[in-house]
């Protein structure tokens, strides 16, 4: 994988790569991708992809409200908060 692709991928993943990271992660990722290409040797023509491991029946939930008993608890866990809001910096 070239540096450009690596940087695009890192941007999508919202991870900053420093110089050292670029080299180290780049090598590790490239090595795995090359290994993944092994799969091309297999003929998978006409096969359905497996998207879910085991599927039995329809699973849905009835439209019933259960008020969250944890809301206050979760707000308390905010790294930074203002009143009941979670706070992040804003671009002025």
């Amino acid at each position: 994988m070239d540096i450009g692709e690596l940087e695009t991928t890192a941007a999508l993943a919202q991870i900053d790569l420093g110089e050292g990271d670029l080299a180290r992660l780049g090598d590790a990722v490239s090595q795995m991708l090359a290994y993944f290409e092994k799969m091309n040797a297999l003929d998978t023509e006409g096969l359905q992809p497996t998207t879910h491991a085991l599927v039995k029946d329809n699973r849905v939930r009835p439209d019933i409200v259960e008020p969250s008993a944890l809301a206050d608890d979760l707000v308390d866990r905010a790294p930074e908060r203002e009143d009941r809001f979670f706070v992040i910096p804003n671009v002025l």
Partner: peptide, 9 residues
Amino acid sequence: TKAQKVRTL
């Protein structure tokens, strides 16, 4: 997608 098909196989 290839991997998911290999998974089926």
